[in-house]
Amino acid sequence: MNILDVAREKALENGQGLSQEELVQVLNVPDDQLEELADIAHQTRLKWCGPAVSVEGIISIKTGGCPEDCHFCSQSGLFESPVRAARLNIAELVEAAQKTAKTGATEFCIVAAVKSPDDNLLNQVGEAIAAINDAVDIEISVSLGTLTREQAQRLKDMGAQRYNHNLETSRSFFPQVVTTHTWEERKETLDFVREVGMEVCSGGIIGMGESVEQRAEFAYQLAQIDPCEVPMNFLDPRPGTPFQDYELVPLGEALRAVAAFRLAMPATTIRFAGGRELSLGDDGTEKGLLGGINAIIAGNYLTTLGKQIEKDIDMLGRIDLPIKAL
């Protein structure tokens, strides 16, 4: 049985994720089978997730000055990056959440560039969650780095519904991307998040020099963690970072990766995040939404510009995909 038939039977018909070895085959599908592969991934997404597209806005409460050395990230204080440390106040966060909700988005994520949150940051986030909940009807996610179990419980009690902590890449490739902490530390935070009853959000970045086999390993490892949501980024090489001279992920590779992630996780929300504008462009973004993706981050990202939210909303109307309602 060829890999397309396997994908059709396991993922589409039975909702069963493909094995790591099968995902390697998906990532190596020849060009003349890519359209068929994308259609299987899209039909899998429609059957197990429905047609609606979840739209999320994202904002950084603290930008830059991070002590970690994630080689892709311009927020690290260890690199000569043009990004400088800055903080937002509560009123600015509420205003951003209100603007996000007006576009039809149903989720808003508060992010901070830290290794882990201190008490002052947790207090500020708690105030922000309360103020946003008073002002607008929107689901609130948080991403504040590594957590203890007690910190996870505190965020849950504050009203955070979901916690994002990306594994970033496969376990075997992780030491080539980050040296100041381990893949296992990230996994432990996700375990704490799940234990206290918050939803787990974890994904990563395609195109950091990983092999096809490691890309399949990453998708399979995410599937074993079973997050409710997977942000899917494509490397946007940032000036001053160790990855600044890396090439962009070609469109065909990006679409194969989208299909592989969907076929690894048939019923999971998979969200286009950073880098999609560069690696996929408008045409590729539409193809991704018709090839396995069922969610997007709209507007700008943490340190890079995205597309205007209104343009993404127009695109969804053009390809006849509804926006998910609260």
Rank of each mutant, 00 (worst) to 15 (best):
Q161M: 11
T148S: 15
G145F: 03
E35K: 08
E107S: 13
L122R: 05
A130Y: 04
D69Q: 02
I132N: 10
D31Q: 12
Y163M: 06
P30T: 11
D39T: 02
C73T: 09
S116I: 09
D69V: 02
D137H: 09
A101P: 02
K99N: 15
Q33V: 01
I58L: 15
D31C: 05
V53L: 07
E68W: 03
E95Q: 13
K47D: 05
A85P: 04
K115N: 13
T169M: 08
P67D: 07
L37G: 03
Q124C: 12
R162I: 06
K99A: 15
K99D: 12
H71G: 06
V142W: 00
E139S: 14
V55R: 04
I140F: 07
H165S: 06
F72Y: 15
A85L: 07
G145S: 08
A131Q: 11
S141Q: 07
E36Q: 12
P82R: 06
K156S: 10
P82Q: 10
I110H: 04
R162M: 02
L147Y: 10
Q33N: 08
L144R: 01
L34S: 10
R149C: 03
H42K: 08
A152D: 08
N123P: 00
L167F: 06
E107A: 14
I129W: 00
A128C: 12
L167V: 12
H71K: 14
E80H: 08
A41M: 05
H42P: 01
I40R: 08
E36C: 03
S81F: 05
I61H: 01
N123W: 00
C109K: 02
S141M: 01
L37I: 09
K99V: 12
L37S: 11
P67W: 09
N166I: 08
L167T: 10
T169Q: 05
A101W: 08
E127I: 08
A128S: 15
A86Q: 12
K99L: 12
R149G: 00
C109T: 15
S60V: 13
G159V: 01
C49M: 11
A96T: 06
K102F: 13
W48R: 05
Y163K: 03
V125P: 05
L155H: 02
S76R: 02
L34N: 02
A86T: 09
H71C: 10
I59A: 12
